[in-house]
């Protein structure tokens, strides 16, 4: 059993390091700093931490102004409020002017759990991906989150990073690299490729191990950068394995599955199965119960692999 770390904890830790390294790093939150882990930064740097209160629209606008004034703002709240409540502020005040603000949205997806469907964002990746100038990242685990947050801080322009609430298995090594626009092949395979993001990458690695016992060779490609998409890696997987299963803790509409299908249908059409929420909202329950209910377990990925192979 690999080590388990919540990506939001890795975020809090990395923010603190960035705060120590660069006095221009400032952090905003909308009354969820204990949950998003920005409070870790706020405790050490109270003069550079700005709670906007329960006012996400203004938080994003303030972040834009801070960036225009030369700071590097990180603004956090739950994904459902960041991409939903503050959407137009992200569009007008961040994406349109290419403002150097990092939106780090925690509690993405259904593994929010008990809070229920009102708090489980299944559409944030789609919404953010549709915005010109926006970079959209969705790391798989703790170590990759640290690297992604650092890459976002070094990048000039708006970035949306989606993180989760629950602890997830570590699949990358501490100190791993992260390049915006690049994916990572975590397991080689020749019969099909799992193209995954966020916590579904760990699930795909388990599924690939199960398939290996059936003599099916499944490649696992993790895309921590949803936009820009690593088009070369996706096309290479399609050409070399001829069948794709995408998996994300998000609606099958407009997120990773959407992005991969858009790319493949233009350049290398092959059979694809999209694993994700089938155009439905979530509900209350334990994270594991919800993953099972909505078809996001290794067993479901194995079934999707068998389906896509029959279409090959």
């Amino acid at each position: 059993m690999s080590e388990m770390i919540a990506t939001r904890d890795a975020y809090g830790k990395t923010l603190l390091e960035l705060g120590r390294e660069n006095p221009r790093v400032v952090v905003l939150d909308a009354d969820l700093s204990g949950s998003t882990k920005t409070a870790v930064f706020g405790k050490e740097f109270p003069e550079r931490f700005f709670n906007a209160g329960i006012a996400e629209a203004n938080m994003v606008g303030m972040a834009a102004g801070l960036a225009a004034g030369g700071m590097i703002p990180f603004a956090s709240t739950f994904a459902v409020f960041a991409a939903g409540r503050a959407f137009e502020q992200i569009r007008q005040s961040l994406a349109y002017p290419r403002m150097n603000v990092k939106i780090v949205a925690t509690h993405g997806g259904i593994t929010v759990g008990e809070d229920g469907g009102s708090h489980q964002s299944v559409e944030d990746l789609a919404i953010m991906r549709a915005l010109p100038n926006m970079t959209v990242l969705c790391p798989a685990d703790g170590p990759e989150t640290e690297a992604a947050v650092r890459a976002a801080a070094a990048y000039q322009g708006p970035v949306f990073i989606r993180l989760g609430r629950s602890k997830v298995p570590v699949v990358f090594t501490e100190g791993c690299d992260f390049t915006i626009g690049r994916g990572a092949t975590l397991r080689q395979g020749s019969d099909l490729t799992f193209i995954t993001t966020g916590l579904m990458t760990a699930q795909a690695l388990e599924a690939a191990a199960i398939l290996a016992e059936e003599n099916i060779s499944a490649r696992v490609v993790h895309l921590g950068s949803i936009k820009p998409l690593d088009v070369d890696l996706v096309l290479q997987a399609a050409r070399e394995t001829g069948a794709i299963v995408t998996a994300e803790e998000h609606s099958v509409i407009g997120g990773l599955g959407g992005a991969v299908c858009e790319t493949l249908c233009e350049s290398c059409p092959v059979p694809v199965e999209r694993v994700g929420l089938r155009d439905v909202f979530g509900q209350s329950g334990l994270a594991e119960e919800l993953l099972a209910h909505y078809g996001l377990t290794p067993a479901h990925l194995v079934e999707a692999a068998e389906r896509v192979l029959r279409r090959k």
Partner: peptide, 12 residues
């Protein structure tokens, strides 16, 4: 949206 940005500029 401008006022929020002005607030951010003032803090900066």
């Amino acid at each position: 949206q401008g006022l929020s940005q002005a607030v951010g500029l003032a803090i900066a």
